[in-house]
Write a protein that binds this DNA or RNA. Sequence first.
DNA 1: AGAACACGGGTAATCCATTACTCGGCGCGC
DNA 2: GCGCGCCGAGTAATGGATTACCCGTGTTCT
Lengths: 330, 330
Amino acid sequence: MPTVSDVAARAGVSTATVSRALNGKPTVDPGLAERVRTAAAELGYQPNGPARNLRRQEAAVVALIISDVENPFFTAIARGVEDVAHEVGYSVVLCNSDESVAKERRYLDVALQERVAGVILSPSGPESSVAKLASRGTAYVAVDRPLPGADSDVVLVDTRAAAREATAHLVAQGYERIGCVTGPAGVRTADDRLAGYRDALKAARRRSTTKLVRRSEYKAAGAHRAALDLLAQPEPPDALLVANNAMAVGVLQALQDRGVRAGRDVGLVTFDDAPWAALVDPPLTVVAQPAYELGAVAARLLLARIADSTRPPTATTLGARLIARASSHR
Amino acid sequence: MPTVSDVAARAGVSTATVSRALNGKPTVDPGLAERVRTAAAELGYQPNGPARNLRRQEAAVVALIISDVENPFFTAIARGVEDVAHEVGYSVVLCNSDESVAKERRYLDVALQERVAGVILSPSGPESSVAKLASRGTAYVAVDRPLPGADSDVVLVDTRAAAREATAHLVAQGYERIGCVTGPAGVRTADDRLAGYRDALKAARRRSTTKLVRRSEYKAAGAHRAALDLLAQPEPPDALLVANNAMAVGVLQALQDRGVRAGRDVGLVTFDDAPWAALVDPPLTVVAQPAYELGAVAARLLLARIADSTRPPTATTLGARLIARASSHR
DNA sequence: AGAACACGGGTAATCCATTACTCGGCGCGC
DNA sequence: GCGCGCCGAGTAATGGATTACCCGTGTTCT
């Protein structure tokens, strides 16, 4: 594996010149620079990343820690981050914390060790270990969910308002006993969606009861259990607000298991406009979140913070959009 | 940011001992090792990854380059890889080549520069630049699709047989004009699925015509166009074999657009048992591929090759399973 | 008791790219 | 014509962890 010295020898210059030429520094004679480039190409020279990062004290890499790779919402965020980062020459490494605080911490440690330039994360739990990042001066941005306590850049969706709107929509469609399946306590989006749901019930002068609310992991299996449980009650809900698209899968399975028809028997609004949401029977009414934008904005904020660590932290809130389809209509 | 020297000073030992203690080398007095560990903890010491990797000439990281992060098939592979790699202390960085040979090459370069221990990839096109990996001695494994020309470890699904079985199933269900929507020429899975489809038609003594075959990118948009195109023909197909799950979305949209009922009007078998496949109307008959297993096996092969670069390359082929649901039944 | 050896631990070389510092040579101004 | 300043390029220091090599102490065998 050739090194700068090999290139230098072949081009008949010093290693300093090789480095300057390959990094496009202007203080190199064009002729020499050309000679260096051909020498590098002939040897198939690839700079040694670790050596470069060691010297530079930072890698041109940002880590993106998402809570569920199998959720299209988060992969769309990833696309947004990637596109923006690549434009300015940063690479993105995607880490899947799988809604586990332990895995999240592990990835944060790796990011810290590898001296990445910055981190974008969607915190999986109430207690996050970003303190380490802060104390090391590594830039970071929270996406989708704020960081408890930390005064950081953050990009959110106005999910409480969206949940309120979605619930109001169910009320307007004439559903009587509207339930809610949301994520774990302490995960901000889960709490906000529940709060929005309650806001709407209150505004409609409906009594809100914990009997119609269930929490579980943000995954299909948990939502499946939650939905079965709700349906098994003496007075089951006639509509459900479902807090993310993985959960929507679980809830739909539960309805199918019980032979309950979505829309007709139980109205449904779910978060996230997954590619398949319009294809199920009946097409799902959804709260479409601007996931790609979320990622793109987060990436831009991160880059800005990497460039200037003294910027005051900003909070960006994007809006969501209710797309009414047949599942919320008798 | 503390370094080994800081820890050494605090523990009253040399940097060598610190390194040995923290890396669990047996040649350190347990008492000293303990002192080192407390010192490190008190300082919040995090080893400098680039420095370590520079010295070790390799990072405990494997790169996984997949062709589409938004496709559940590939994210399931990612889970398999992650689980296996983490068990032995490797980190996984996920790279999304987005079915683009250029992005794939870019990520390969990054992987090479960062001196990752190994690479697992699903090649996006017929010409892949793994030659660089080979010449640098970096371990790699192909997953889902073989590497043209390269004699590497590879983990595949017997996708031709699966396509044959799926098509035979459509024949057996009484469909007459069976079409096929597959991926780009040169992508092995796309070609194999088409070949399997033709195998089955031949076995059933059906005439196979290019009028019923369309190729597009492995994405929803392309499949949508392809399906509309097929349906617009004077003699449209009465059944379709669809080569992956992103495409299934596009095809279902097209059917919806045209008011054609899946199953009744047009039988459907698609590849990949996505979480939502059983939830659409009608539930999709699918070829379920062992995606998680694919990833897990690939990771194990990669680790074996990292440990011993002289092993002869192996090819592993896993079977797929046809799950008959309502979409292939009038 | 003396010698050989095992073992724990320290010193310093090493990995490779970047960059501060330095130096020679050339051009321009007085 | 002389000197100052600038430009291009080289020398060597730097970053932090690992590890080859070496040394001193304590053990064991003869």
